[in-house]
Design a binder for these strands. Structure first.
Length: 255
DNA sequence: ATGGCCACCGAGGGTGGA
């Protein structure tokens, strides 16, 4: 089973890239973030023609998440319970006995801002809900744009207190690991300076000024089934790309 | 690296992203 996550930064703009990429990589499950479209205009027909079922949780202009799957999708859940929020950031569903949680984490804008406080509160609510979700679904993947670079090795420069790397954000990431989740990318030896996001400005992609902020976390029963995890930079090289690259993990069918 | 890009809405520049 091949599971991917990709922040497409507008599904409408990126649909041609997505369809080409689905044909090339044939992932079983794809978690998408930043759809920036309402559910009523979600491109179900185009994705069905490509062989994918889809469930979505979108809104106009901002946010929005979806799960695509070549196999049947069941038990769909939207949003964080017990956390009042108009922003569409979470969708979960079950595919082939695996619970897939797709999340677009809060950016936070700047350390100390109102949005930063919202980020930390949202992270706490996510973690509490995931503990509950894991108790019901031990075989679980948390996939998405975390907007957190967990370690210094995940940042191209020596940042310490900035947004996306600040100690409280990294503590929140470790709290997710504390639920028994493992960062799939770090289960394997990896080259240095592998990132998933590069600013559109300053030729950041060409200079590899990036951050590793998109992640696939595997619950304890799933982690031993992972055979590889990698970032696919190819779509980031195309004309009019998303600023994020997809991340993929492959799980054996055994277990 | 931090003005510099990209996408949004809507009809021009303001907002948000990370």
């Amino acid at each position: 089973m091949k599971i991917a996550t990709w922040n497409v930064n507008s599904l409408k703009v990126r649909l041609p890239h997505l369809l080409d990429w689905l044909a090339a990589e044939a992932p079983d499950v794809v978690c998408l973030q930043e759809l920036k479209c309402e559910d009523r205009v979600f491109p179900h027909a185009e994705l069905a023609a490509a062989g994918y079922h889809a469930v979505c949780n979108g809104q106009k202009t901002y946010n929005g998440v979806a799960i695509l799957s070549r196999h049947e999708i069941t038990a769909v859940h939207r949003d964080l319970p017990a956390f009042a929020d108009d922003q569409k950031r979470v969708i979960a569903a079950t595919v082939g006995g695996v619970r897939i949680v797709c999340a677009y984490f809060v950016n936070g804008q700047a350390v100390g801002s109102d949005k930063y406080a919202y980020k930390l509160a949202w992270l706490e609510a996510l973690t509490a809900w995931l503990a509950d979700e894991l108790s019901r679904h031990p075989r679980l993947v948390l996939a998405g744009d975390f907007n957190i670079a967990p370690e210094d090795a995940d940042v191209h420069a020596d940042w310490k207190e900035a947004i996306l790397v600040s100690p409280p954000e990294r503590a929140a990431f470790r709290a997710l690991l504390g639920l028994g989740l493992a960062d799939a990318f770090r289960l394997f030896a990896q080259p240095e300076k592998i990132y998933t996001w590069w600013d559109y400005r300053m030729m950041a992609f060409r200079r590899n000024f990036g951050l590793r902020i998109d992640h696939l976390l595997l619950s304890a029963p799933l982690a031993p089934q992972a055979t590889r995890c990698w970032v696919d930079k190819a779509p980031r090289k195309l004309e009019r790309p998303s600023d994020h690259a997809p991340v993929l993990v492959e799980l054996t069918d055994a277990g």
